[in-house]
């Protein structure tokens, strides 16, 4: 049984400018289930954004395939909504028109009133109501702009929502508020989300599963870490959860140390590069609750 979104042997090589080739990643293979919120974490240059662009259909992989809901991804589509880091709102349109632009493209058969009603509803869901929605993006703060972008993406009910470091350009406080809003709006839907971030805490707060990438070149999606913290989550409560620091420490260790150690190794030709599933759960009785690392290794090796 294939997962809802299946990334199969994805390889991306670029010419390195000296007549040779630079392999960004090779034979990356992983899946995302329907309704799942998956976050990919890794250092700059490991090819996260390239994977994102391939999933969006904005870029072509050197080889390999992306299959969603039984169909191969070829080119961009309304089924895959994208929230870009720089918001990508059209600056000559008002906030409302930026959303109706997307909704009208999704539902060409709707009347103008239906499109406006639907768009207004989604803008209200991210806290934008009243006069604000008639302002131009340049008159909004960065956080508000990203809210508009999120509303535009959610309003279209894409089969897959791609978030490319959506909070990267925001200050920490604004980021927190919008993360909460994203959780709220996501909680009410069965939306499948694939998101890129640099922020470990953000990843733990939002994700069902975190994919960890090693550094490039020859980057790999090395691990798939399940976030064993029940939902609904809030940023103040999850840090009290016994699994929080265990997971966090694991992620920090990976990004700080092992992402380097594992990098730069070409694979055997044809070998499929699948992430190792990791499950850290301190609430389950473990044979040796005093020491996490041995228990962790046992899971990795299994």
């Amino acid at each position: 049984m294939k997962p809802y979104l299946s990334i199969e042997n994805l390889t991306q090589r670029f010419p390195d400018g000296k007549g040779g080739e630079l392999t960004v990643f090779e034979n990356a293979t992983f899946g995302v289930e329907k309704g799942e919120f998956v976050v990919i974490l890794g250092h700059s240059g490991c090819g996260k954004s390239t994977i994102m662009n391939i999933l969006a259909g904005l870029a072509e992989p050197t080889s390999g395939a992306v299959v969603m809901d039984g169909q191969e991804v070829k080119g961009p589509s309304l089924d895959r909504g994208v929230v870009f880091q720089n918001y990508s709102l059209l600056p000559w349109l008002s906030t409302l028109k930026n959303v109706t632009f997307g909704v009208a493209a999704r539902h060409p058969e709707w009347t103008k009133a239906e499109v406006i009603a639907h768009s207004t509803k989604y803008l209200a869901m991210v806290g934008l109501e009243g006069d604000v929605i008639h302002r131009k993006p340049s008159q909004l703060s960065g956080g508000m702009r990203q809210r508009v972008s999120i509303a535009r993406a959610f309003a279209n009910h894409p089969k897959l929502l791609l978030l490319d470091e959506p909070f990267g350009a925001l200050d920490a406080l604004t980021r927190g508020t919008i993360q909460d809003e994203l959780l709220k709006i996501w909680g009410g839907t069965e939306q499948t989300v694939f998101m890129i971030t640099h922020d470990i805490d953000e990843a733990i707060l939002l994700a069902d599963r975190i994919l960890l990438m090693t550094n490039g070149p020859f980057a790999r999606v090395a691990e798939s870490v399940e976030i064993t913290i029940p939902r609904p989550r809030s940023r103040t409560e999850i840090i009290e959860h016994p699994n929080y620091y265990a997971i966090r420490n694991h992620l920090v260790q990976f990004l700080g140390k092992r992402s380097k150690e594992l990098s730069g190794q070409p694979m055997d030709s044809g070998a499929t590069n699948r992430p190792a599933p990791i499950r850290i759960d301190k609430t389950e009785p473990t044979p040796d609750p005093e020491d996490l690392r041995p228990g962790l290794r046992a899971v990795v090796n299994s």
């Binding site: 259909g57 904005l58 589509s77 895959r80 994208v82 990508s88 059209l90 493209a105």
Partner: peptide
């Protein structure tokens, strides 16, 4: 390129892209 990508991810045809995104931009 971001604005053109917005048009592409919304499956606008080339004519619509020209008039609703490129022309105003």
């Amino acid at each position: 390129a971001d604005w053109v990508n917005v048009a592409r991810t919304h499956e606008l045809n080339p004519l619509k892209t020209a008039f609703t995104v490129i022309l105003p931009a």
